[in-house]
Amino acid sequence: MLAPTAIATEAAQPVTHNFFNELRPLPNDLARYQYLHRLMPQLSVDDQMQARQFLAFADANLGLYRAAVSDFPFTNTAPADLIMPTPSHWRGINAVDAIVGLAANRRIVMVNEAHHDPHTRLLTLALLPRLRALGFTHFAAEALDEKDTGLTRRGYPLTVSGSEYMREPLYGEIVREAIRLGFVIVPYESFDKAQQVRETGQANNLYRRVFVADPAARLFVHAGYAHIDKAPGGLGDDVRPMAMELKRLSGFDPLSIDQIRFRGVDPVR
């Protein structure tokens, strides 16, 4: 039995949780959602931040999209020298139409997402038929796993098809639609822990599986966050993102569509 002073000392120490290991045995997203809600009040501040991200994943997979955004809110600070567009100099147009126009002479188009916010998957879903009609041949998604060799033949993803993001309905629909449209489906994730090794590994996988295999290919990539950046900074000052590495390998300048950089979220709303 611990003395009262020892209990107080122990309680003051932050408990570090390995949420991957803790959540993996649970049978479904509802169980993960309930587990994290019960656990949250007991967590240290640092553990709460990580737990909130996993809770947002569970929210999204359960279709609780507003809850996902509020459970893991984040804001990005715009650069101090950024000049925002004004109505007198810019006009709003349909994003899909604009991107398709910009993609007409491109070999690579990339769109990013915030993994816990399925709203950022809608653009890719809307672009799939338009880019296919434009002549794009290959579709690559970060969440896919190369171990599922029967994905295209089957026509839809299973649990073994990739990461937990695949359990969210919109992500699953993206994969089903890409298969239905006749895209060559390309898994490309690299599972190295070192960030630069991962970025270079992703780019190498895309280069070999797409442009080496088919020199005439045109590639549409759905990735997360700053992997689509064409310059260092978003993943660390010394990290060359996947898009930058793929440009170096292929010689093709990707059209990168960033939905995340100025995506401010007010958790009160």
Rank of each mutant, 00 (worst) to 15 (best):
residue 22 E to V: 03
residue 104 A to K: 07
residue 120 T to Y: 15
residue 168 E to I: 12
residue 129 P to H: 00
residue 22 E to H: 02
residue 224 G to S: 04
residue 120 T to W: 12
residue 167 R to T: 08
residue 211 F to R: 07
residue 68 A to L: 14
residue 32 R to W: 15
residue 120 T to M: 13
residue 268 V to M: 14
residue 249 L to F: 13
residue 134 L to R: 01
residue 7 I to E: 02
residue 204 N to F: 00
residue 269 R to Y: 14
residue 212 V to T: 11
residue 108 I to D: 04
residue 212 V to R: 13
residue 262 F to R: 13
residue 248 R to Y: 01
residue 43 L to D: 15
residue 160 V to E: 02
residue 97 D to C: 01
residue 185 I to L: 03
residue 209 R to K: 10
residue 102 L to A: 13
residue 29 D to S: 09
residue 267 P to V: 08
residue 148 D to C: 02
residue 262 F to Q: 15
residue 44 S to E: 02
residue 128 L to G: 04
residue 88 S to K: 10
residue 3 A to R: 13
residue 54 F to K: 11
residue 133 A to V: 01
residue 267 P to Y: 12
residue 218 R to M: 11
residue 173 E to N: 01
residue 259 Q to V: 11
residue 174 I to D: 09
residue 204 N to A: 05
residue 173 E to L: 06
residue 206 L to P: 15
residue 38 R to P: 01
residue 212 V to E: 14
residue 191 F to T: 07
residue 20 F to T: 07
residue 172 G to H: 14
residue 183 F to G: 05
residue 240 R to Y: 05
residue 128 L to I: 06
residue 123 L to T: 01
residue 144 L to T: 00
residue 202 Q to M: 00
residue 152 T to S: 00
residue 153 R to M: 08
residue 212 V to M: 10
residue 22 E to C: 06
residue 120 T to R: 09
residue 233 G to S: 15
residue 213 A to I: 01
residue 69 V to W: 04
residue 238 D to Q: 14
residue 16 T to M: 12
residue 94 N to L: 07
residue 86 T to Y: 04
residue 93 I to L: 10
residue 60 A to Q: 02
residue 195 Q to E: 10
residue 156 Y to A: 01
residue 164 E to F: 08
residue 171 Y to V: 10
residue 112 N to W: 02
residue 243 A to Y: 00
residue 175 V to E: 02
residue 234 G to M: 12
residue 188 Y to L: 14
residue 184 V to Q: 11
residue 57 F to T: 09
residue 18 N to Y: 05
residue 68 A to Y: 14
residue 99 I to C: 02
residue 26 L to P: 11
residue 141 A to Q: 08
residue 70 S to L: 10
residue 96 V to R: 15
residue 69 V to G: 00
residue 254 P to K: 03
residue 193 K to A: 09
residue 90 W to N: 05
residue 222 H to P: 02
residue 50 Q to H: 14
residue 52 R to N: 15
residue 209 R to S: 06
residue 10 E to D: 11
residue 36 L to T: 09
residue 235 L to V: 13
residue 59 D to V: 00
residue 202 Q to N: 01
residue 62 L to W: 06
residue 258 D to M: 03
residue 217 A to P: 06
residue 225 Y to F: 15
residue 79 P to R: 12
residue 54 F to I: 07
